[in-house]
Design a protein around this nucleic acid. Structure first.
Lengths: 187, 187
DNA sequence: CAGCAGCGAGAACGATCGTTCTCGCATCTG
DNA sequence: CAGATGCGAGAACGATCGTTCTCGCTGCTG
């Protein structure tokens, strides 16, 4: 396999810097230094900073989807697959670099000005909700449950980031169990 | 009663602009124009932009606390007081100007760089959780429930902002009912 | 070897940032 | 009336932003 392309290096470096410190706080000069490329090369790979931001968000979307999907594939049964989401969150929250959901952060920072960022963030969250809805449907539970499980996951991400502790994942998981079992017993 | 002071005008204007468009996106010149004061006056009331940001967050914290508290006072019983939080959210989400939780947005935008913002945001969220914990305690339910109800509220705020719809409030309320009743039946 | 295309280093550009300074007018004090 | 004070308007400052341009080296092709 070939080593990563220049564009990938740029995206990975930008992702790390933007996530750590915020998008507007990281200038193109800093990105150039950290990625070890020339400014000329930066602008030959991407037309502008906006394009890098979009590429970073799209890469992050694939990573999240793949990560959640892999975690869900490890267990059997729809109920366990739903709960696997919170186990995935628990691992993520433990990472030193964890600083909340990159999409929520980008939305808070740029969502007021940049309609394209709004669109990407919204699509990311909708796709997660759709995936949950599929599994909830397999369970035979109402779609409302999928939305509620998503609320728990979103709340856990922001709470873990702000509180600086990962305990929200376990709390969300326990709440999810109650909601799932209640939905099943009502069906 | 006297009309609002210059400092209050500045804070209220800054709050609106920062919330609508993001903090870094709003410069001091724009704030001066919108508040109708001179730049000189801006810097005589506040030593720097950071101080305005902090003042805005602190005002927002009082507004949130007072608003939730007033809403909870309208109903009787601990269970209804807890659920009143989500009714408060539902009203808020319907406002045209709603763009998510200002603290979460500020955290996403500045939390990576500004430790003071981190502290204020964390304190705000902790104070909300403490208030929930008091009422949960009155109910005789375990403290875990308070954390879970907070997760639902946080998740509803970000989801409503990103999706651009207020339905998350009702979904969170329904989930809260299930969690509360489950906690009570187990006690 | 001559000529050319590609690219890195970094200067340069115009815009805008937060912040400070200058100037001139208005209002008060004696 | 003379002088001082306070403040608004806005120019000025240095820094930094995103972006483009220049220059000079490197390695290819004929």
């Amino acid at each position: 396999m070939t080593s990563e392309s220049v564009a990938e290096t740029i995206i990975n470096t930008a992702d790390r810097l933007y996530y750590e410190r915020g998008i507007t706080a990281v200038g193109m000069a800093e990105l150039r230094d950290a990625a070890g490329v020339s400014l000329r090369r930066l602008y030959s790979e991407f037309p502008a900073k906006d394009a890098i931001v979009r590429a970073v968000l799209e890469k992050r979307h694939r990573q999240w989807s793949d990560g959640v999907e892999a975690r869900m594939a490890e267990v059997g049964g729809s109920r366990e697959r739903l709960l696997a989401v919170y186990d995935y969150l628990a691992d993520w929250f433990c990472e030193d670099s964890f600083r909340g959901c990159g999409f929520i952060n980008a939305f808070g920072e740029l969502g007021g000005e940049d309609a394209e960022v709004r669109r990407i963030v919204r699509e990311h969250k909708e796709s997660f909700q759709r995936r949950l809805a599929e599994i909830v449907d397999d369970l035979g539970a109402p779609t409302l449950l999928a939305a509620q499980l998503a609320l728990l996951a979103e709340g856990a991400q922001t709470t873990a980031a702000i509180a600086g502790s990962g305990e929200a994942a376990g709390q969300a998981r326990a709440a999810a169990e109650v909601l799932i079992d209640h939905a099943l017993s009502a069906a």
